[in-house]
């Protein structure tokens, strides 16, 4: 299978869906770039070059550069979705949700319910998240728990290029509003990605490692760290199951519960802040559903309860890493590990 980067995988998913369905349009700030400027057109292809080359192939009628006006264009995408298009809007950094959240959580997410089931809102929002980029407090957050909280939204966190193409394709074809979280440190990650279009269903976790001792549930970029930790621990004789839920909403409760029951130990790795995040959610779920099957207290590996710091010296401590995951697994294993 051909190797592609996370960036290429996303670009390919968008292109294939635009070619497949003329109702698919994309919009966002500088997603093509150079709009109205005298110089190069398609100058950026988005701040990370993810959508580069799509405008020349599909024209400015379907690749819409927006002014810096998140409230208007995210709301516009919601309205367009409710009236017949299948827009893919890029919210450059999820941190910018502060200026458009109403359009997502009060409007798009609730149309279906408020209107008695008669609205269909096939809206996709792609957004960048995550620390590790020296981007400081307003460009580094992992705000997916906030979106996960809202009924009516679906939330996907692709952990590698294969997942990125399949989950984004599913998001675009899905008839509900979906927020796809792309970790900004993963755009150059490479992996095998089929040339053909494919979808990965939402709410179906991917078990990336199967082991007997500890179940590690991890999200987005943290899945890769969890895999690395599991491989290291394997050599030390601790065998881990690693679960990538793929989507936080819907959440594959069954796979989390089944795999945790098999091992009796749980470690959840979540790059988000610790209060009301996915780690606390899953530990709560497991505690309620299968307390008796637990051999040890569940462990949570998360970012601390502070804004993302700028200084590399601080940010490197802030982001959960392989060593912390290994330590949490050993903690769950108890004495002698």
């Amino acid at each position: 299978m051909p190797k592609k980067s996370y960036r290429q995988a996303i670009n390919e998913a968008i292109r294939q869906e635009m070619a497949r369905d003329e109702r698919v349009i994309i919009m966002g700030e500088d997603i093509s770039g150079g709009m109205g400027a005298p110089g190069e057109q398609d100058a950026w292809g988005g701040p990370m070059g993810v959508t580069k080359g799509i405008m020349p192939d599909f024209s400015r009628d379907r690749v819409l550069d927006t002014p810096i006006t998140e409230s208007a264009f995210i709301g516009c995408a919601a309205g367009a979705a409710a009236t017949g298009l299948r827009p893919v809007a890029e919210l450059m950094f999820v941190d910018f949700m502060g200026v458009c959240f109403d359009q997502i959580f009060n409007q798009a997410a609730k149309f279906k319910y408020m209107f008695g089931g008669k609205a269909v809102t096939p809206l996709t929002i792609r957004t960048m998240y995550g620390a590790g980029f020296r981007a400081a407090s307003q460009h580094s957050q992992c705000l997916y728990p906030l979106f996960t909280h809202i009924p009516g939204l679906k939330v996907a966190l692709p952990s590698n290029p294969y997942e990125a193409k399949g989950l984004l394709t599913q998001a675009i074809r899905d008839d509900d509003p979906v927020i796809v979280f792309e970790h900004k440190a993963m755009y150059d990650d490479e992996g095998e990605v089929p040339d053909e279009a494919y979808t990965i269903p939402f709410g179906e976790a991917n078990v990336t490692r199967e082991g007997d001792d500890v179940t590690i549930v991890a999200f987005g970029r943290m899945v890769n760290f969890a895999n690395e930790a599991a491989d290291n621990l394997e050599k030390a004789g601790i065998s881990c199951t690693v679960v990538d839920p793929r989507t936080t909403s819907p959440l594959d409760r069954d796979t989390i519960l089944e795999t945790t029951e098999e091992t009796g130990r749980l470690v959840v790795v979540d790059e988000a802040h610790p209060r009301c995040n996915m780690a606390s959610d899953i530990v709560g779920l497991v505690s309620q559903e299968m307390f008796g099957a637990l051999k040890a207290a569940p462990q949570m590996v998360t970012a601390p309860h502070c804004p993302v710091p700028f200084s590399p010296a601080l940010e490197d401590i802030y982001v959960p890493g392989v060593a912390r995951i290994e330590a949490a697994v050993r903690q769950a294993m108890g004495k002698g590990h």
Partner: peptide, 8 residues
């Protein structure tokens, strides 16, 4: 904003 969407 929704009306911008319908117009789009």
């Amino acid at each position: 904003p929704l009306i911008c969407g319908a117009a789009l």
